[in-house]
Structure formats: structure tokens, C-alpha cells
Simulated scan of single mutants.
Amino acid sequence: MELYLPIAELPMNVFMLVGMGAAVGFLSGMFGVGGGFLLTPLLIFSGIPPAVAVATVSSQIVASSTSGALSYFRRKAVDVKLGSYLLVSGVFGSYLGVMAFTRLRELGQLDLVIALSYVTLLSTIGALMLTEALRAIAAQRSGKPLPVKRPSTQGWMQRLPLKVRFSRSKLVVSAIPVACLGLIIGFLGALLGIGGGFIMVPALIYLLKVPTAIVIGTTLMQTLGSMAFATIAQASTNQTVDVVLGLCLMIGGVIGAQFGAEVGQKLRGETLRALLGLLVLSVGLRFAVDLVLTPDDLYSLSFPTGEQL
């Protein structure tokens, strides 16, 4: 059953789109992470223009983050003050990301920048996750506990000005690293179509020492706000949000997440981290291979907006 995507300007099989959303939803439910960093590459590999893939996934992230954020709010597992700092800086970062997105699209370099960014980001994070998980598995099999190494922030971070007390997180920290973190995640989210939770969560835990119990809810609050702004900005500035595509992905994602959560509960934490690291690394390497392979069309004509003939 073919379905025409008005913004992507190509027909796609509706069952394939729903299945794609279900597959990423399954992985998200199993690993407990947002699927933007997997869904955007998958859409690009399927022939969706990168500009449309990035912008449309932003809308899908908003939908998937809403229910999670509301759930954590009801359980009072959100540091609203910390989330507000991250949200404000994240919105500003999203604005910068959309502006960079627009400029790169005008120059015709958006596809290359997205591919290079995914190669660098996913390959690095995937390799680190896989290495850490394999070390944990090896230590478990040998019967020796793996020491937890957390970077010390008692030095330079404590000397920064603009200290703010976050009562819910029971910490006093400078607003500068908090704002910078939100800015970076917002920028990457708008430019690459990723929620940023797989970066934000460990950063809050290990860098700012935010209690683990409220990290996910606070991250979802920031993701929801910044990606909602990015979606509106992309739709109004670049007209690259495909509602039909986003709806198919959302339907599949909701279904797949339920099954993924059940499977994830049956696997050990170290195994899950190893599988996720391997998956992330594989996607990064796939982008790298596409960059060095000879394309089917050696030449292409493009308008100043970056749209290809």
C-alpha cells in the first residue's frame, strides 16, 4: 500500500513506515533511550531526504516525550527548576540549530554535515558504550567488581560563578555548565534530529551529580520543550516537517515500545549496554561507508535552497 509523502515528495509503503517506527520504538523501549539518533539515519537510508528526516523526527520525539514527561511529573520525579534552566538554554540552542540548518541547506551542504556529524557522534559514543559494557561483562565473569569511576567536578566547576541552588536535586552548582549543556543538546537536536537523552542523562549524572531518580524526568522536560520549538521553527522556516510521515512513525513507535520494554526487562544491564553500543557504532559506520562509496549519480543539480533535481 503506497502512501505519498507530500513534503518528502515521494511515495512510500505505509506498512514499511509503520514497521520502521515500530522497530525503533521496540529498540527505544528495550534500551530505555529516545530513538531519534536511530530513526533519523534509518529514514535517510530508506531514501527520505535528510532535511525532511531531521525535521520530521523532531515532531516524533515531541510526541514520544510527552507521555513520559507527564508520567514523571505525576510521580514528582522532575527537578522543575533545573529543567527550566536546561529548557531555556535548550530552546536558544534549538534556534541556533535551525538557523544553522537553514544556512547549510541554502549552501547545499546540509546532507554532508549531517552525515559527518552522525559518523563522529555515533561512532564515538557507540565505541565508548561498547567498551564499557564489555569491561563490565568481563569483570562480572571473573568475579571482580568493576570500580565505578566518576569524573571529579569539585575543582574547576566549583570555582565557576553564578551559583544556583536546585533544591529538588539537592545540589548547588554554577548555572554556566547547566546552560551550556542545554544549549549543546538543543543545537544538536535541531540540526540532527536527536532528542539528546543518551548524552544528557550521563552528563547530568556524572558531571553535575544530579540524583539518578530525577534525571530521566528532567531530561524529558528539556527534550519536550526544545524539540517542540525546533519542530515549529522547522515547519515555519524550512517547511520540512512531513506530518503524514510523522504520524506513521508515531503509530509504529507506540506499538513497538510496548514490546521492547518487556524484552528489555528480561536482559541484564551489561548485555543491554553492549547491544546498544554495537547498534550505535554500526549506524555510525554505515554513514562512514556511504561517505566513501561512489554514488549512483555522480552529478546533481541543486537550487539555492538545497533541493535536488
Rank of each mutant, 00 (worst) to 15 (best):
P147A: 05
L70Q: 07
F303D: 07
A100P: 06
A51H: 15
G277E: 10
I176V: 14
P41H: 07
P50C: 03
G21H: 12
G68F: 04
G182K: 06
G197F: 04
I251K: 10
L298S: 10
I114K: 00
S28E: 09
S59P: 08
V78A: 03
G197W: 01
M250N: 08
A127V: 14
P177M: 08
M157K: 07
V280C: 07
I125M: 11
L107K: 01
L279E: 00
T271N: 09
T124E: 11
T294F: 04
R150A: 05
I114V: 15
G195N: 12
R165N: 12
F37K: 05
G155R: 12
A203F: 11
F259A: 14
S58I: 14
L207N: 06
L107H: 07
G264F: 07
S64A: 15
L298I: 05
A233K: 02
S167N: 08
Y4C: 02
M250F: 14
F187L: 14
G195F: 10
P295F: 10
A136S: 14
V98W: 00
A127D: 02
G182T: 11
T120P: 06
M129N: 00
L278N: 03
L130T: 00
A274I: 01
L70T: 09
L183F: 15
V178P: 07
S302V: 07
S117F: 13
Y299D: 04
S142N: 12
G97K: 03
L38I: 12
T40K: 06
T219F: 04
V78H: 11
Q234K: 08
R105Q: 13
P295C: 10
R141M: 09
S169C: 04
K266R: 15
A100E: 08
